[in-house]
Nucleic acid binder design. Structure first.
Lengths: 141, 141
DNA sequence: GTGCATGCAAAGTCTTTGCAGGATA
DNA sequence: TATCCTGCAAAGACTTTGCATGCAC
C-alpha cells in the first residue's frame, strides 16, 4: 500500500477526506499514459471493482481539479473534457487529428519570456500556457 | 458590397452555395476580435436582421470548418466550442482564466523544427499546432 | 427542376444539481 | 457526532439529427 499512501497524503495535505474513489482516481490518472475522459475513468473504476456513480466521478474530478491535483484539457474535435495527473505546472500533447489519440510531451519549447511579453502587452498577469501539436498518428496515416 | 464579395468568392471557391447566413457568419467572424461561440454568432445574426435558426448556425459552422474557412477552439474552463475566421494556418491566444476573455496573438514562438521532432519521435505526421497562454486580464486582476 | 440549405421539433451527449442516506474524521 | 461524500434521479447546457419546405444554381 506504499503507493496509495502518496495519494492519501496528497488528499490530506489539501484538507480533503480520503475515500476509495478519490484515491483510485488519482492512481488511475497517475498510471495513465495520456489524458482520460470521465467515462474512461468511470469504466476503469468498474473494472477495479470500485463501482462509483458517474456523478461521483464528475464531482471527484471537480474536487481534484480545484485542488490542483489533476489538470483539465479539451480537444479540438471532441467536446469532452479530459483529465490527467498533474506532475508539472503545465503539460503539452501530441494529438492525432484522426483518432484523437494523445501523447504527453515532456519537453516545453515555450520560454517564459515570450509568454510574459505577450501578457505585458495586453496587461495580463501570466499564470500558465498550453501547447498542442496536431498530426496523424502511425495508425491513421 | 465589396467586402461581401470576398466571402462570396470564398464560398464559391469551395463549391459551397451562397446564402445570407453563410456570408454573414463569415463577415461576423472576420470582424470579431476574438473567437465567438455559436450563441454569440446567433445573437449577432439576429441583431443584423438575419434571424437564422440555431441549428442552421451549427450546421453553417460545421460546413465552414470542414472547408477550412474558419477554425475551432475550446477553452479550458468552458465546454463550448469557439470559432474564428481563419486568417492563417494556426492561431494562438491569450486567455483570461477568470472571465475567459480571449485575445488573438499574431506572433508564433513555435518553430516547426521542434514540432517536427516531437512528431518524428512518435511516428506522427505533423499537421499543425495550437498554443494558449493563460493569465488574468486587467479587469480580473 | 434538382439538389442543397433551412426551420422546427425532437433527441442525443455530456455535465450539473438536489436531496436523502452513508462514510469519514 | 458533525461534516463531508455518495448514489440516484432529474434537470440543464450544448449539440446533432430527421423530415418537410424553400431557395440557389
Amino acid at each position: 500500500m506504499q503507493e496509495n499512501d502518496v495519494y492519501r497524503n496528497l488528499l490530506t495535505q489539501k484538507g480533503l477526506r480520503i475515500t476509495d474513489v478519490r484515491v483510485k482516481v488519482l492512481e488511475i490518472l497517475d498510471d495513465a499514459e495520456s489524458p482520460m475522459t470521465v467515462e474512461d475513468v468511470f469504466t476503469c473504476l468498474r473494472n477495479m471493482m470500485i463501482p462509483a456513480n458517474l456523478s461521483t466521478v464528475y464531482r471527484t474530478m471537480d474536487v481534484l481539479l480545484k485542488n490542483g491535483l489533476i489538470a483539465k484539457t479539451t480537444l479540438l474535435d471532441c467536446n469532452k473534457s479530459m483529465y490527467e495527473y498533474k506532475r508539472v505546472e503545465h503539460k503539452h500533447h501530441l494529438v492525432c487529428i484522426a483518432c484523437n489519440r494523445m501523447i504527453s510531451l515532456e519537453d516545453c519549447p515555450i520560454n517564459d519570456e515570450y509568454a510574459r511579453e505577450m501578457c505585458r502587452r495586453q496587461g495580463f498577469e501570466l499564470t500558465g500556457h498550453k501547447l498542442e501539436i496536431y498530426g496523424l498518428c502511425p495508425k491513421c496515416k
